[in-house]
Simulated scan of single mutants.
Amino acid sequence: MAKKSRRQPARQSAPVRRAGKPHVRPVSVALHRDQEMGSLVALVPWHREHGAVPELSVLILLTAFFPVYAEFSGGAPVTAMDPGPIAAIVEELNKRDAAVGSFFCACLFEYVHFLRHTGRWSGGEERYRNLLRVLHRGVFQENISP
């Protein structure tokens, strides 16, 4: 008598889709982290041509900032930063050390400009303008509210 194969059927790599409903893949924190790191790699050559703040300082600050923003914003992507949480962070930094708050804003201003200049900004036009306003005011330690 011949042995039956106990081989398992191949798993489907794509989820089963219901008629009329497109598949929506949840965005993971890991995906945002990959985007952040990828944007930092791309920032280096762009920054050499367009940046004003020392490159290494910008990279160190942004690398430290991304996890803080993820926690503060509930995991929102940095490519569409919300001006509200950024304003709260800047206000807190300015309370502790105005020079640090100003430097933070200058670095983040360059990064946001890079995102927009290279087509990586995924937020809307109004969000972009409001974020730049918060950062500009933060550099000069003016009223931060978006």
Rank of each mutant, 00 (worst) to 15 (best):
S5Y: 05
Q8S: 09
R11C: 01
Q12C: 06
A14C: 05
R17Q: 13
R18E: 03
K21E: 12
V24D: 03
R25T: 15
H32F: 08
H32N: 04
Q35Y: 06
M37I: 14
V41M: 01
V44K: 14
W46A: 11
R48C: 04
E49F: 07
G51A: 12
P54A: 15
E55R: 15
L56K: 15
S57P: 10
S57C: 07
S57F: 06
L59R: 14
L59D: 05
T63P: 03
V68E: 11
V68C: 03
S73E: 00
P77W: 00
P77I: 00
T79W: 03
M81F: 02
M81N: 02
D82M: 00
P85C: 00
I86C: 02
A87K: 11
K95D: 09
K95R: 14
K95L: 11
A99L: 08
A99Y: 05
F104H: 14
C105Y: 11
C105Q: 10
C107E: 07
E110M: 05
Y111F: 12
V112K: 01
F114T: 10
R116G: 05
G119H: 09
R127W: 01
R127C: 04
R129G: 01
R129M: 06
L131E: 02
L132M: 15
H136V: 12
H136T: 14
V139H: 08
Q141H: 15
I144G: 06
S145I: 14
P146I: 15
